[in-house]
């Protein structure tokens, strides 16, 4: 059946005063757990949603210059690999699993963590570092990815993201 629209059919691209806002708390430092937050932040920005990422605890590895390009994936404790857990403990296994995962991600045309963060910033996203995590690891702003806007307290982040939908990863 063919429906003929007399009025122009225009997709809903929202308006510039869209109130939608998203806050994503990244608390994990494993390679596999870095991506959900990055992918969702990128998707939200592409939909015109104001997006803030807050890196805390192990999630600090995603923005720490020393570690951000070297996140790892391990089979240990991850039953979703459907491999015998004993295998994961063998020497070199984490390196192998990490290598495989990186390759899969690259083959799909998905950027590595530092490049992904840059894409998020270029799309208008905001990166924030957790004050307590910085203090625990004795890190300063210069130790962190250059695009991180600041090291802020948890309450400042909550304040900045008033009215936002929130994801904890």
């Amino acid at each position: 059946m063919t429906i003929t629209e007399n009025a122009p059919l225009v997709p809903d691209f929202g308006t510039t005063d869209t109130p939608r806002k998203l806050a994503i708390i990244c608390s994990k430092g494993n390679l596999d757990m870095a991506y959900p937050g990055l992918v969702l932040a990128n998707a939200a920005l592409g939909e015109g949603v104001e997006t803030h990422l807050f890196f805390t605890f192990w999630g600090f590895d995603m923005i720490h210059k020393k570690t951000m390009g070297d996140l790892k994936f391990t089979m240990l404790g991850n039953t979703a690999t459907h491999m015998p857990q004993g295998l994961g403990g063998l020497p070199g296994m984490t390196a192998l699993a990490t290598h495989q995962m990186r390759k899969t991600i690259t083959d799909l045309g998905i950027p590595d963590v530092p490049e992904f963060l840059q894409q998020i910033v270029d799309s208008g996203g905001h990166l924030w570092a957790c004050r307590m995590s910085a203090d625990m690891q004795h890190l300063e702003q210069e130790d962190l990815y250059d695009e991180v806007e600041g090291i802020i307290s948890a309450s400042d982040f909550i304040e900045k993201t008033a009215g936002a939908q929130l994801l904890f990863i």
Binding site: I3, E5, L9, V10
Partner: peptide, 19 residues
Amino acid sequence: MTTTTIDGRTVHTNDEGFL
């Protein structure tokens, strides 16, 4: 299937309006 008129021409679109 949906059609709409653009510049006097009939074109096919999906239900959102993408050709």
